[in-house]
Write a protein that binds this DNA or RNA. Structure first.
Ligand SMILES: [Mn+2]
Ligand SMILES: [Mn+2]
Ligand SMILES: [Mn+2]
Ligand SMILES: [Mn+2]
Lengths: 219, 219
DNA sequence: ATTAATTTTTAGTCTAGTCTAAAAATTAAT
DNA sequence: ATTAATTTTTAGACTAGACTAAAAATTAAT
């Protein structure tokens, strides 16, 4: 069966919301992320349920079915592979690629994405450290921690970000925080949970809890 | 001003029809190429005229304005650059890329297409020998002939094709006719205008007028 | 356990882009 | 120059995907 652009965007967002929790997803939370009104979301959920891509009961929320999930994963795979292409081959910065990938992820071709995958040498992660689902929809669980969870005086490696927004990524770049950086937590302020970090023996930098929460690290 | 996918496809087709002739373009000819009904075309022509991209008078046909033409050329530029990418970088054959490029040509980004252009080393022609418009909308007039116009015993070089259809391109491939091939016209049958060709001293092959008409050559 | 607040769904409307059927204009044929 | 054939436009209807306003269901507060 064929998927429209609108349907693909809904499935992708429902996937993101399902990831966190075992609960069913609320209409309002979807409305927020799609920038649509709740009434429009209800309409679409009924269509998606009709097509067998979500399970949905009035007032009780929604979840992806196996098929719905595999559609979402194939779009995420395309999004992330295109982001790798834009950064690795065309020389974009990591904060510039998300919007373009939002368009490219909807290009429909059986062969294209696999040829692209091969051209890029089968990358396992995208420019933001997010794992790239395989053709079969396997997505490795990387088990990263949020930097905000790291204990005082521990050292870790920056593996990814939990947010794609350009302003956030530009801030990280300005602070010299890029994928692979070695970070030592030298101070945690209990008052506002802000953090001081040493990046590879340089003099410490200061980041808010909001920032630390969106940085993914490996111990 | 912003262009929808449907509008872009109409402008591209009107451009193609304008290219040939100085006459205004008929509603029916557009309907045929867009695979829409004439009534739908009339609707769209009124919208395009409203936006200033075509000049249009009821019953009198349509032409692109300067702005309309520059939009069409920017889409054609994108289409052809993506075709080069698909063939040169991803290893597609020339008969496999048109449909994918039909989708990619609508990706909207100021920077993307110029970075792609640079990544591809500023190609001047696409995999079918068609010229790639510059960023400014300049399109070199290549002055090629149709193979059907070449005189008996003359030798020429295959520079391009006048048709993108997969079956046509596959036929050429099967006949060993590819870009750059040296062709000698060794026989022209006046009855059906079919042609016999020597490709680089090999034994002659036979092609119909229909095929010869869609092969572009340089003497 | 009622009432109040919140969330979700329904009902009805809108736009873009398509269609069919019928009317109007143009072009071709007598 | 009429008439006939063809082309083009209008009129009215449909679908996808959005919206607003109002009704219904759920959840929270007394
Ligand atoms: Mn992204
Ligand atoms: Mn990413
Ligand atoms: Mn093409
Ligand atoms: Mn081409």
């Amino acid at each position: 069966m064929t998927t429209s652009l609108a349907e693909e965007n809904y499935l992708k967002i429902i996937y993101r919301l399902c990831e966190g929790t075992k609960e069913d997803i609320s209409t309002n939370s979807i409305a927020e992320l799609t920038n649509n009104k709740a009434a429009s979301v209800t309409d679409m959920l009924q269509k998606l349920a009709e097509k067998g891509w979500v399970t949905y009961q009035k007032y009780q929320g929604v979840r992806l079915t196996k098929i719905g999930e595999s559609i979402a994963l194939s779009i995420i795979r395309k999004h992330r592979l295109w982001e790798v292409f834009l950064v690795e081959k065309l020389g974009y910065n990591w904060d510039e690629v998300h919007e373009i990938a939002e368009q490219l992820e909807h290009i429909e071709s059986e062969t294209l994405i696999n040829k692209l995958d091969s051209f890029l040498d089968f990358p396992k992660i995208d420019p933001h450290g997010d794992p790239i689902p395989s053709q079969e929809g396997e997505i490795p669980e990387l088990g990263y921690l949020h930097l905000s969870e790291v204990k005082l005086n521990e050292t870790c490696t920056l593996m990814g970000v939990a947010k794609d927004s350009a302003v956030f990524l530009q801030l990280l770049t300005k602070l010299n925080l890029s994928l692979g950086a070695r970070l030592e937590v030298v101070e945690i302020n209990t008052f506002d949970r802000s953090v001081s970090l040493k990046i590879a023996e340089e003099k410490p930098i200061f980041i808010s809890y909001e920032v630390a929460k969106n940085i993914l690290v490996k111990i």
